[in-house]
Each structure stands twice: as C-alpha cells, then as structure tokens.
Design a protein around this nucleic acid. Sequence first.
RNA 1: GGCGCGUUCGUCUAGCGGCCUAGGACGCUGCCCUCUCAAGGCAGAGACCACGGGUUCAAAUCCCGUACGCGCCA
Length: 485
Amino acid sequence: MTQKVRTRFAPSPTGFLHIGGARTTLFNWLFARHHGGQFILRIEDTDEVRSTEDSVQAILDSISWLGLDWDEGPLTLNREKGPHQSYFQMKRVDLYKKHIGDLLKEGKAYPCYCTKDEIEAMRRLAQLEKRPPRYDGRCRNLSAQQKKDHEASGKPFSIRFRMPDDGTTIVDDLIRGKVEFENKLQQDLVIQKTTGGPTYNFACVVDDHLMEMSHVIRGDEHLSNTPSQVQMYYALGWTPPQFAHLSMILGPDGAKLSKRHGATSVLEYKQQGYLPEVMRNYLALLGWATTDSQQIFAPDELVAKFDLAGCQKHPATFDTIKLNWMNGEYIRKTPVPELIELARPFIESSGLKINGGPALEKTVALEHEKYKLLSEVPGLIDFFYKPVEFTPKAMDKVLKSPGVKDVLLGLAEDLKDFSPFEDKALEERIRKFCAERSLKAGQVFHPLRAACSGRTEGPTLFLMLEILGRAEVLARLKAAAARLN
RNA sequence: GGCGCGUUCGUCUAGCGGCCUAGGACGCUGCCCUCUCAAGGCAGAGACCACGGGUUCAAAUCCCGUACGCGCCA
C-alpha cells in the first residue's frame, strides 16, 4: 500500500454508541493500526434537531472504554486535535457551502424549490402507480425565467446534486467486490437543506476528501448511497477513497439489533461487567474471521491479524451466550489483584461491607473460574461478609435431612480447639470425623457447606473454612443448628 | 415497487474446483476428574453447504434462474 492509510469513524451524535457503531469503530481502528495508519474521529452533527452534546460525550466515553484511541478529532467537547479547523461538521459549514457554490456554478448542482408537500405528493403518486418513489427532477432543468421567478418569490429552496443521466457507477468495494449501479436510476440527492445546512451525504464526501481518508469502512446500509457519493467526488474533481461495507449485526430474531433485544449501548455492557478487551475480541469476530477460526486474540494479535479480506458479506447475529463465555475466559486469565480492581466498582455498589472480613485477595480468588461477568463477583463472595442466608435448597434438601443437627454440633465441638485451622489439616480432621461416626463424606461435607455459606454450591470447602476462620465457622455451625430446632 | 446486498451445524465461522464421508468455536448431551458448583480433559449429537438448473472428469466452491431475508429510495 503506497498510500498512507487513514480511516475514520463518523457517528451522528443522536444517541449512545451502539453495538453496530462500536463494531464499525473497531474495524476502522484495527485496519488503521494494522497498516500503521491513522484513525480519525469526526462528529456528523448535521441533524440539528437530534444532535446533542451528551451524545457526543457518551460516544467518546464508549470508544475510550473500548480502548480505541484516535489520532485526530474531538477529545472533549471543547478540545480537538488534528490539523483541521474542526471535526464537528456543523463547524465546517462554510467549507460545504464553498463546494456547493462550485458545483452550482458548473451546473453540477441546482436549486430545487419543491416544497415538502410537493415531494410528499410525488412520493404518494409514485407509490400509487407502483413506480419507485423518487424525486422526479422537476427543478432539474428550469428555464432562466422560471429560476428568476422562484428567486424573486423568496421561496426557500434546497440544492440537489445532478446525477449523470446515463452510464453506470461502479463501486469497487473491498469486501463485496465491484458493485454496479445505473446512474439514471439514482435520484438527485439533496446536498443542502432549505435551512442552509449540508446533508449527510454531501458533508461526508467533502470531509472524507479534505481529511484525506484512504478507506471508508462503514455499515452495509450506506452501500446504496455510495454511487451518488462517488459521483460527487467526480464532480468535485476528486478521487474517491476505497470503500468497504460491513455487514450488519442482527438480534437473535434476525432483525436488526435494537433496543428490544436488550442492551445495545456499549456503556451498558460496561455496566454489566464485560471487559473492554472482550468486547473488542467478540465484536471482531462478528463479521470477521481468520482462516483457522481463531477465537481468542491478544490485543496486539488482533491488530496484527486483522484484514478486510476476512470480512463477512452476510449479517451476523449477536450472541450473548458466546460473549459471556468469552468474558469468563478473559476473567480466568486475569490475575486476581487485577480482577479485584476491575470488580471493585461492582463490589462497592453492591453494598457489601468488606472491611473486617477476610481479604478480597482470598475470597475473590476462591471463585475465580466461576465469574462470567464482573458484576457477578459480589454475589459469589457475599456470604463471607454478611450473615448467612440459606437458599431454599440448602435449607430443605440439605440441612433438614435427618441427623444433620448432630453433625453440625459435633463438628463445632471437634473444631473448637482444632489447630491448625487450615485447608489440608481441616480436611484430614473432618474426614476423620466422618470415619468416627461411620458417615459418608457427603453426609458431613454438604451440611457443613450449607451451614457456613447458606448454599449448596460454592468454593472448595476446606479452604473456605480456613478463610472464614475458626470463630466464624463455629458461630455459623451453631446458628445453623439452632435453626433446626 | 425499483435498485443493491446476502444465504455452510441453533449461533459465530473455515472453505476460494479435487485434501470435504464439510473443519474450528459457543451452546447442547454423555463420560472422566471431584467435597458441591464451576473450571479442565475426553467423547458425541448437530449442516442433504437455501432451492432448481447448467459448466466440468470433478462444485459448498464457477454460471444462470427461483425462493427467502436484509438494506437504500420514505
């Protein structure tokens, strides 16, 4: 590749960064990093009504959380980095106006005086007659007199881009190959609204060119607009960038991923306890694969191995089950001290009182291989830090079995002075206890676990007792026995 | 409706004319390990490669059509 690689993500700040946008960001970022190029962030806030500063902030936060950095673009709402005057389109309106002026002068664009109602009527009629509902080009070739009349009337007008009447436009897509469009079937897109603001399609072309994008990697839904955009590049005397259209991400029901499928905002995944590395790894696999179907990638590995050739043409279904598996994989590989820091916000918001209890290093480690989400950490260690609450199963199926009360009291008695109160020694002593009473291990182990943790499942028993400590174990045994009266 | 895109196990995918009686991963089932739950190990079920025609000695792979899905035009 002789040309310097520059990619961008250009979100409209009309909501949070959703999964699809995150995947697009990721792919652009991976591609740029893979080729040692640059990744640019641009805010397409041409929708003056729906764009908000909160959305901009949320999007920047999401991208940052994902661990993706950008070389140019907004850092905060007030600060930008990079050589361009701004990376917010509404602050670049003069630029668009200048180029629209050029197109107008050359007859490559024209004012359109049709009102909303007229356009709407056109659409209805077309639908009625089973024709494609497109602009009929009535302002395309106005006579000088008509133009004068319109101008004199002071009617608001938009500006449309004049598509060539014949020929075809070929979009050479890096993922889909050459896609051919007949020009006469494309309609003359509005490039400047009646408000004077640019439309998405035009601002996008101007910016991608001025910001020297080498590759435009974006969602599938933009493919249909691409021939018009390509023609705009030609009209402005520019060379279009290379395009790559990514397939969409669907929900489990095959419909485009949306709110009703659950979490769609990236930040919601953060709140649910997913790791950013996992989101990157999983999202990379939605629509991209290596020839050996590798599943888990170290961060650098993803950058090293990513290419557009491995991208899928068909849409992919977002699978939370697999995401959860992957998150568990990553958590298992995370050293405990690090895990504790990652889980700390979740532990804190759970209200667990850690102070005075066993060290988190010990309790968190005990269940290390069980967490799928960071948010699950407090729930699995909570019994170390608060009074035992018996699950129905622990109470009814285990503790209420015949003879359990004697077992618990007997254990309490035997362990009262037993030392050392440690994993291996405890196991030995308790197995001896079983032998002395001719009980099967399970008849003692299960009630012991239930009495001390309130549950039927949990960490390895004797280490758990060690960590709880003698006093706590004895107290819990007696308390549980008392419940059995 | 027009145009465009897509279609391999339930899901993510490998596959680019012979290595495919279709490979991997998640999930599922069973077994092993075991103090429970996980994790781990092993084994297994699961895809007439959407369908129908071609091309070819040979097609999941190339071509055409059909169906279905999706996107854009709103």
